[in-house]
Design a protein around this nucleic acid. Structure first.
Lengths: 186, 186
DNA sequence: GTCTATAGAGTGATAGAC
DNA sequence: GTCTATCACTCTATAGAC
């Protein structure tokens, strides 16, 4: 027994999947155990802080992924337009064309928001601000860039809601295409 | 005792508030009892089908409100522009400038979506289609009208997510203002 | 022996149903 | 208010790596 399998980091994506599927309150330890294929003992060995620590780690990993794959290219790429185009590509991939939901968005709407206020706020703030920075580099004024960035990030979140409601990926991909056109053709 | 207080219809808005605050899974009977000031017995007297029936009734009442105050004016008003302007006014009021969340949107993102698939889908479909109908009456082509309607309804949902995440009503009201301008000034 | 990863019986509290 | 099931979580016991 033991030692063969998991590190904590390996468990987090499985945990993320459980939280995404059932929400924070709906993610019971039974479901978590099933989803991670870990016994309760192992779970609490990795996350002594219980569900709250699990969700914290999941949010941190999501944040890290976006920092690396979306926010940094928006801020640091040689061409702002390339960073913006890459953002839309990555977002479409990450959310599986709308089949997968944004866990941070789910947490923002639920009452669990209170537990994770700062992490949820920082995630969206980093997204909006890095997109705005890229838009400023394309020549927009700061005010316009921020408004447009908010519109696009919000538009993506809303498109996820609609795509799930209609169970149609083209609602998501279509929304991304229109948002991209508004940023890159003007 | 009895007979003094509630009819079933009086309870539904209170129920809606509980579901909106805690989500479907998070709305425990204890919280429901507290929010409605009803004993468990009374609750099951009104809703023999339990939580699922409660949520069904809440969704039905939301749908009715939007039909009356948003969808019908969009379809039937003498001037399409007036119906559109009224939609934005009503939406801003209804969602308390972003302090209140869209329960249908929350259900669309959660796994409870499976229980309420049809109701969630129909709500958003009715919204998108009635807005598209109004846009067609302003002279837009059908394809453009539908795309724009999806963008606006999605934009509203996304703005609710961002407004909650940032805890700033101006994020919601600002988004509404920009969406309105795109529909009414072109 | 010590450490880490594992499993799962058992805790009181609370769930939803009636 | 009463029911059983399930909740989040604790605790003890165990396996193997050092």
């Amino acid at each position: 027994m033991a030692r063969l399998i998991a590190e904590r980091a390996d468990v987090i994506p499985l945990l993320a999947e459980v939280f995404r599927t059932y929400g924070y309150e709906g993610a019971s330890l039974a479901r978590i155990a099933e989803g991670t294929r870990l016994g309760k003992g192992s779970i609490y060995h990795f996350f002594p802080g219980g569900k709250e620590e699990m969700a914290d780690q999941v949010l941190a990993q999501i944040d890290e992924w976006f920092k690396l794959n979306v926010f940094a290219p928006l801020r640091e790429g040689a061409h702002a337009e390339q960073g913006i185009a890459a953002m839309f590509d990555q977002v479409e991939r990450y959310f599986l064309s709308g089949r997968k939901v944004c866990l941070v968005g789910v947490f923002a709407l639920g009452n669990e928001r209170d537990r994770f206020t700062a992490k949820v706020r920082d995630y969206f703030a980093a997204w909006v601000e890095s997109l705005a920075a890229a838009l400023i580099r394309t020549g927009r004024a700061s005010d316009e860039a921020h408004a447009l960035a908010e519109e696009v990030v919000g538009g993506i979140q809303g498109a996820l809601v609609l795509a799930r409601a209609f169970d149609r990926t083209d609602v998501f991909t279509g929304a991304l295409r229109r948002l991209r056109a508004r940023l890159l053709s003007s």
